[in-house]
Simulated assay, not measured.
Amino acid sequence: MCIAVFLWQSHPLYPLLLFLNRDEDHNRATEALRWWEDGETVGGRDLVGGGTWLGCTRHGRLAFLTNFKETTSFPDAKSRGDLPIRFLQSLKSPADFAEEIQDEVALYNGFNLVVAHVLSKSMVYITNRPRHGDKLVTHVSPGIHVLSNANLDSPWPKCMRLRESFKQLLSENEGGEFPVKTMVEEVMTDTVKDQEPELPHVYTPETEYHLSSIFVHMLRPAGPYGTRSISALTIKSHGEVCFYERHLEEGGAWKEHTQHFVIQNQSII
């Protein structure tokens, strides 16, 4: 499970503010935030499936992914983590990329994918589990959005708490520098949980209870599960990018990684 909150194209200083918690088995092999071998892409990597949950390129391409909460999954399904990489390594616009993959989304277990090109101010949400009557692809409107393990902006209690805390910090700083450190250290580490009537009732009540906080930690028979990393990605109007990650290392130590760069212009097709 994961959760992200982001502000898109509605701030005088930041075209994008994004905060994302990745929840995963603690023993799943994972590589921390770094520049990849292509020299163009920065992000963490899942060393089991080979994909990523969040990545960005020097040319302002951005992609992040969450799994969809459901009781059934198929072991032979394609790896969802490949989808962000495919977009990051392409030259297609978000809309064209979404069109390209529409015919194959049934090959994956449930996912939510957001892809964006910051320079062209284009962001698209793609899911293979749309609500009844909704489309697979939606253009993301300017403003605050929250994505967890249901559809974009679903009113789960922890999503509403995250939205309100983020909104409060934005209002306190009135369009100026956003307090990224406060957001990471106080909001994204919130362990407040919901009571049984408020839970989505997809899994057992005990499991749902432990998953109902923004920052997750729970013990399972296979080992600890929960928030493995907290990411903060900020992009300023002049193209300056700060990509920060607090990452849980093997052995239980938390380490910080930060990458800074300025977006370079590149054509899309």
Rank of each mutant, 00 (worst) to 15 (best):
S141W: 00
G81E: 00
Q266M: 14
R131G: 14
A222R: 11
G44D: 02
S212M: 03
H247R: 12
G175D: 05
A222S: 11
G252M: 03
V184A: 05
R80W: 07
L162D: 12
V115M: 12
G239I: 02
L16K: 01
Y225E: 09
S165F: 10
R131T: 10
E185A: 14
A150Y: 05
E245V: 00
G110R: 01
T52M: 04
G81W: 02
W8P: 08
V105K: 09
G226A: 02
V216T: 00
T204E: 03
L17F: 09
W35I: 09
D153E: 04
L88Q: 00
G252W: 12
N173H: 15
R163H: 14
W254P: 05
G223M: 09
P12E: 10
R22H: 14
E186M: 05
E24T: 07
L13N: 08
S229E: 08
G55A: 12
V202D: 05
P142C: 14
V180I: 07
V262L: 03
P197L: 15
L233E: 08
R34T: 15
P179N: 03
H26D: 14
K158S: 00
V48W: 08
L219W: 08
L152A: 08
E245I: 05
M1W: 05
A95H: 11
F74H: 12
F261D: 01
R129Y: 12
H145C: 12
L33A: 11
W53L: 10
G143Y: 06
N27T: 11
V262G: 00
H201S: 09
Y244F: 15
E206R: 12
K78D: 13
V137D: 03
T234R: 05
L199M: 13
T41N: 04
H217K: 11
D103L: 12
T52C: 08
G81N: 03
L33R: 06
S90V: 07
V114H: 06
G110A: 05
E250K: 13
H59A: 07
L219M: 12
T227N: 02
F215S: 14
S229W: 04
F68E: 01
L88M: 10
Q259R: 09
V118D: 11
G223E: 13
I144H: 14
F97V: 04
W36T: 11
F97M: 00
E172R: 15
G60R: 13
M183A: 06
C56G: 10
E177S: 12
H257V: 11
T182H: 09
D194R: 08
N151S: 13
N109V: 13
K167V: 08
L219D: 15
D103P: 00
G50D: 06
S231H: 08
M188Y: 06
L162P: 00
E70Q: 15
S229R: 01
F111C: 08
I144M: 10
R163G: 06
S231K: 04
F64K: 00
L16R: 01
V187M: 10
T191G: 11
Q266C: 05
E206Y: 14
I269L: 13
V42P: 08
S267R: 06
F68R: 01
F97L: 03
S120M: 15
R61W: 05
G239V: 01
N128Q: 07
K236H: 01
A253P: 05
V5C: 13
A32M: 14
R228C: 12
Y209D: 04
